[in-house]
């Protein structure tokens, strides 16, 4: 992979909590515009890994480079979508989506234009003046996704964002996410414990081992889109990944 084409470089990343070794010398690269899913056994340290990228945790050793430089959230345009809903309850849908843009002091016209653009993408135009407590679970997660995309992030980190949704909503939002990624070309690192989800949305799948976590393998997912979860090739890939993360 040429240097210009690399978005994220993880080099010998190790994270310990006291004596507990969670991440053990993890190294890999994510290319620009790549949609990478990270899967692994429950509790293997997937979230710890994301939290190291965003500096919520300091790595014990090793480094994470974004565009060839150590991660600096003031400089790099990174968005993070958490597993739990993180819409601000005192802001309307529109104000929530504009939150990051206002923080970054974008001009008013630009804020309005971008909010209008992403609010249409996630289908919430009719709800722009609603407060979060007036919205359903899927709408709430769409608000958070729209807020993340409104800033046109270079890197979007998603930590099991659909983990709490039922299967129908999950499929709908997964399709929406793929659509947004195809339109905007954002680099996405998506963590999930749901292998079907990983096979459905990803371009590449990074499989982690049990603790202390290392990389088991990186699988290129070249299934054509739109993907059919009942097709033979889809099921084969899903079973291949399942075999890889089996710890039982």
């Amino acid at each position: 992979m040429s240097k210009e084409n690399v978005k994220v470089q993880v080099r010998h990343l190790t994270k310990k909590f006291g004596d507990l070794l969670v991440l053990n010398d993890v190294s890999f690269e994510v290319k620009k515009g790549q949609f990478l899913c990270v899967v692994g056994p429950t509790g293997c340290g997937k979230t710890t890994f994301l939290n190291c990228i965003t500096k919520l945790y300091e790595p014990t050793s090793g480094e994470i480079l974004l565009d060839g430089e150590p991660v600096d959230l003031r400089k790099h345009n990174v968005s993070y979508i958490f597993q739990e809903y993180s819409a601000m309850s005192w802001l309307t849908v529109e104000q929530n989506i504009a939150f990051g843009l206002n923080i970054k002091h974008f001009p008013k016209e630009e804020v309005k234009a971008r909010v209008d653009e992403v609010i249409a993408m996630v289908g919430l135009e009719k709800f722009r003046n609603y407060y979060p407590n007036q919205l359903s679970a899927s709408m709430l997660q769409r608000v958070v996704i729209a807020r993340a995309f409104a800033t046109k992030p270079d890197l979007l980190l998603m930590d099991e964002p659909y983990g709490q949704l039922d299967i129908e909503l999950r499929f709908k939002l997964e399709d929406e996410l793929i659509g947004l990624w195809e339109q905007l070309g954002t680099t996405i690192i998506f963590i999930t414990h749901n292998i079907e989800e990983a096979v459905y949305i990803s371009e590449d799948i990074l499989v982690l081992t049990n603790k202390p976590t290392t990389i088991k393998t990186m699988i290129n997912n070249s299934l054509p889109r739109p993907r059919n979860v009942t097709s033979r090739s889809f099921i084969d890939l899903r079973e291949q990944v399942t075999e890889l993360i089996k710890w039982w």
Binding site: R74, F82, F99, K104
Partner: peptide
């Protein structure tokens, strides 16, 4: 103030002042 919202605001580039005015204070109202 919900640490998750503080985290979300930080990820969107908020500094301590922003976090106080846009997350901590509204949560306290």
């Amino acid at each position: 103030a919900d640490p998750k919202l503080i985290g979300a605001a930080k990820m969107l580039g908020a500094n301590d002042g922003h976090i106080f005015l846009t997350i901590v204070l509204p949560s306290a109202v």
